[in-house]
Write a protein that binds this DNA or RNA. Sequence first.
DNA 1: TCATTTTAGTTACAATTGAAACCACCCGCA
DNA 2: TGCGGGTGGTTTCAATTGTAACTAAAATGA
Lengths: 151, 151
Amino acid sequence: MPGHALLELESFLPYRLSVLSNTLSQAIARVYEKRFDLSVTEWRTMAVLGYRTDISAREVAERTAMDKVAISRAVARLMKKGLIERNTSRHDKRQSMLRLSDEGWKIYDQVVPLAIDHEKRLLSHLDVEEREWLARILDTLWKAELDEAMR
Amino acid sequence: MPGHALLELESFLPYRLSVLSNTLSQAIARVYEKRFDLSVTEWRTMAVLGYRTDISAREVAERTAMDKVAISRAVARLMKKGLIERNTSRHDKRQSMLRLSDEGWKIYDQVVPLAIDHEKRLLSHLDVEEREWLARILDTLWKAELDEAMR
DNA sequence: TCATTTTAGTTACAATTGAAACCACCCGCA
DNA sequence: TGCGGGTGGTTTCAATTGTAACTAAAATGA
C-alpha cells in the first residue's frame, strides 16, 4: 500500500480508550443486569440519586452525561419497578423531584459494593504511582474535552 | 442518607473512562458521519482494512473488538457504497477476503489525517511525561482486562 | 468415507435507541 | 393580563442493534 496515509488502530488513543472502557462497563453491567435486572441507564440514574436526592431528571441527565430521553425512559422503568419515587416540584410544575425508594436503597446498597470491588480489581493492575498519574491525566482530559464538547 | 453505601459517580474510574471515551469518539464520529456518511462501525472496518488488506470479516471483528453481525452489516453497506471489494477465499470458501477499493482508499486517505489530528489535539493537553504514563497504563489495563474478558 | 461438530457469515425478529415533534408550564416583557 | 420564546419531560416513529437461528463449508475423527 504505497503512498497511503497510515493509521494503526491498536495504538490509536481514542480507539483504545473506547474498547477498554466498553469492555470494562460491560463487565460490571453484566453483573447488575443479570442479578438485579437493571440496565446501564437505570443503574446510573440510581447511582446519581444515591448521593444527590430530590433532584430533577434534567439534573440526572447532566450528571450522567446521558440525554434526557434516555433518562425519561429509565425513570419510567424505575418507577414501574418501584425503585424510585417522584413528586412534582412545587416551585416549577414542569420538574419532578426524584429520589430512591426504600426498595431502591436496598438495591443501591447491594450494587455499590460490587461497583467498588470492580474498580478495585481494575486498579489492582496498577501501582500507586500509576494510579495517581492516571487520576491526574483523566482529570485533565476530562476538563479539557468536556468543556470543549459543550462548546 | 445515613448508613448507606456511598458511590461518587464523578470520581468512579469506570464511569469516567466511559464518559470521556464516548465524548471523544462522538467528536470524531460526527466529522466523518456528516462528511463521508460513514458510521463508526464502517469507519473502523475501513481503518483495519487500511493497514491489513485481504483479511476476512472474522479478522476484522477480532481487530476492532466488534461482533460479527455488526461487521457483516458494515461490510454490506461498504460494498453497496463501493468502498470495499470482496473475493471469496480460494482455500476456504466460507471466508471472504476484504480490501479497500480505489474509492475506499480515497476516503481513507482523507479520514486518517482527521483522526490523527484529533488524537494530537487530545494529547496536546498533556505533557510528554503524562503521555508516556498514559500509554503505559492503558497498555497494562488493556492486557489485563481484555485477557480477562476473553476468560 | 461419512456422520458430527465447528466455523464464517447472513438473516429474521425483537428490543433499544435517537431525532423530532409535542405538551404543559415558566419567564420576561409589553 | 396576555403574548413569545424557552425549558422539563414525554411520545412517536424510524433507524440501529443484539440474540438466536440458520446456511454453507471446513475440520475432526471413527
